[in-house]
């Protein structure tokens, strides 16, 4: 199995605040890997750094064997690494179709015409609302749009930052089902979640992040049954 993403000894600070202190992890092609941890553990910071939005102090990030530290975020998307950010961040004044078009910014119109149909297959509700302004969508629909938008670049690796945040349980199920389907169709997934039990139950492997450091790793099932993890993240 080829390594898709390899992060080694990553350090990231915001001024004097050290948010990430020596994080290392790997993702193999075809896997779902989850990063779990409490609020402020450094999960989003790690993802944002990999995506090129933040520059790390030190450490290496290799995507498909090539270093992407210092590469501009928009170039990283071109290489096949997309991120669906925390809080969705859809373009609220633009329509659903325009949001998806922005997701496919690095692709040709012909490619986008194809991909958008695939996205509508995963998210039929987006098709019904394609001309609706994104700001008027419900939270769940906005999450679907944010994911669909990230898929438009046809990524090999999709990073999802808390896709279940603020959603009703039934929608959370739906989103996780779609994540599994995407993975079965060949997209490698890095999933950050507060909802640790859901995330671990679909993940091949997981990493537990605590105050900027990885303190545990294992298969999804191992972590799901680990006493420390159960106490800290699964409510007993």
């Amino acid at each position: 199995m080829a390594t898709m993403l390899s992060v080694k000894d990553l350090h990231v600070s915001y001024g004097a605040i050290k948010a990430v202190r020596g994080v290392s992890f790997d993702i193999n092609e075809g896997e779902i890997v989850t990063l779990i941890g409490a609020n402020g553990a450094g999960k989003s910071t790690t993802l944002n750094t990999v995506a090129g939005l933040i520059k790390p102090e030190s450490g290496t990030v290799e995507f498909q064997g090539k270093s992407i530290v210092g590469v501009k975020a928009h170039k990283i998307v071109e290489q096949g690494l997309a991120m669906c950010p925390e809080g969705r961040r859809v373009f609220t004044h633009m329509t659903v179709a325009e949001n998806l078009e922005m997701g496919g910014y690095t692709r040709t119109d012909a490619e986008n015409a194809e991909t958008i149909e695939l996205v509508y297959e995963h998210f039929p509700r987006l098709k019904e609302r394609m001309r609706q302004v994104a700001g008027t969508l419900s939270g769940g629909e906005q999450q679907m749009l944010a994911m669909g938008r990230a898929l438009m670049s046809r990524p090999q690796l999709l990073m999802l930052d808390e896709p279940s945040m603020g959603l009703a349980p039934i929608l959370v199920e739906e989103i996780f089902d779609i994540i599994k389907t995407l993975n079965q169709n060949g997209t490698t997934i890095l999933l950050v979640e507060q909802n640790a039990s859901m995330a671990l139950s679909i993940a091949d492997r997981g990493y537990v992040l605590e105050t900027g450091k990885i303190n545990k790793t294992g298969t999804g099932q191992d972590l799901l049954h680990d006493d420390d993890v159960r106490k800290a993240y699964l409510g007993g």
């Binding site: 501009k72 928009h74 961040r89 373009f91 325009e98 922005m102 910014y105």
Partner: peptide, 20 residues
């Protein structure tokens, strides 16, 4: 459209592959 995207959310626009 990229202009509108950048003016709403520069970070999200970068994640789309837009050269801000």
């Amino acid at each position: 459209k990229a202009m509108r995207a950048v003016s709403e959310d520069m970070g999200a626009a970068r994640l789309m592959g837009i050269n801000v």
